[in-house]
């Protein structure tokens, strides 16, 4: 039970015509993990999530949620999984009370009505309001309440904070933290907002053009991706051959390199052997690291994060 893998994909692939939406992804999310699934637009996040939930059929590979094959998720398994769809799409004609009644029917014995009522009150929503009359942010709040009230073991959220204002985003994250504090809950959420990922996630998965480029602990990613600037007396060399170099930009007397998994001592050595006069390790926040990591010039490079 302790190291149980809650979400597993092996060689999961989906292509449309000749385009790989998702290209042989291997993931293993253990129980209790809060995994931030990040990638640029059209990287394959939504496709991957839909494949995991059995809403799309894979071209190749397998996917399992709670030990059950995604293409054949049983009702019992679906009852243990919460899903927040992209755009928080709900039935517009229903009001909040009707939606709650509808949703709770599918979680017999599991639904926390008190929690739902508290969330709705906290958000300042009126129960009689119809979904179509709510703003995007309010609809997101309802969607979150509907997904959290059954107290799911596994919560999958597709870009849950997209388009929400800062205050509602914060509420959303609070809701997630609430779930995190319950034992054995696992969350997989895709996001564009690195700040949210940094707050809440303990694991980061970077997907780029359908390929998983990184899959590791968040703190590992934070310490591994570094920007090193080498300054040269004369002109900077055209290229440097370093294991762990993602990509490198050259100006006349400087070389700005993005290195992955090289510790500070080794950087000093590298600077020396490259003949640099000085070197400087730049400070990067998670957003900077993500942007550099997914920059087109480094696209072909894959790193073995288990070894970093």
């Amino acid at each position: 039970m302790i190291d149980e893998v809650v979400l597993e994909t092996r060689g999961l692939t989906k292509y449309y015509g000749s385009v790989f939406a998702v290209d042989h992804i291997d993931l293993k999310i253990p129980r209790g993990c809060i995994c931030g699934f990040v990638g640029r637009n059209a990287a394959g996040k939504t496709t991957a999530i839909k494949l995991m939930l059995g809403l799309l059929n894979p071209t190749a590979g397998t996917s399992k949620l709670l030990g059950c094959d995604s293409a054949a998720l049983t009702p019992a398994i679906r009852q243990r999984i919460g899903y927040v769809t992209e755009g928080h799409r709900l039935f517009g004609w229903m009001n909040i009370v009707e939606l709650e009644r509808f949703q709770r029917t599918f979680f017999p014995g599991q639904w926390d009505g008190k929690f739902f009522a508290e969330m709705i009150e906290y958000f300042g929503l009126s129960k009689k309001q119809k979904i179509k009359h709510l703003s995007n942010g309010q609809r997101a709040q309802v969607s979150l309440a509907l997904a959290l009230s059954p107290n799911p073991e596994l919560l999958i959220m597709d870009d849950p904070t997209l388009g929400l204002d800062a205050a509602i985003r914060r509420q959303f994250l609070s809701g997630m933290i609430e779930i995190i504090m319950r034992e054995g809950r696992t969350i997989l959420f895709s996001s564009h907002i690195l700040g949210d990922v940094e707050r809440v996630a303990d694991r980061i998965v970077v997907i780029d053009k359908g390929v998983i480029r990184a899959d590791c602990k968040l703190e590992q990613f934070r310490t591994a991706v570094k920007k090193v600037i080498l300054a040269f007396e004369d002109s900077a060399p055209l290229q440097v051959d370093i294991d762990g170099l993602l990509h490198c930009r050259r100006s006349e007397k400087e070389l700005a390199m993005i290195l992955v998994g090289i510790n500070d001592d080794k950087i000093a050595e590298l600077a020396k052997s490259a003949g640099a006069e000085k070197y400087h390790i730049a400070n990067m926040n998670l957003e900077d690291q993500f942007i550099e990591y997914t920059a087109p010039d480094g696209r072909g490079k894959l790193f073995k994060w288990e070894e970093i």
Binding site: Y83, E86, R89, F91, F106, F107
Partner: peptide, 11 residues
């Protein structure tokens, strides 16, 4: 876009 909400049900 409500298929996701409709189909992810314990049935």
């Amino acid at each position: 876009g409500t298929w996701g909400f409709t189909l992810h049900r314990s049935t």
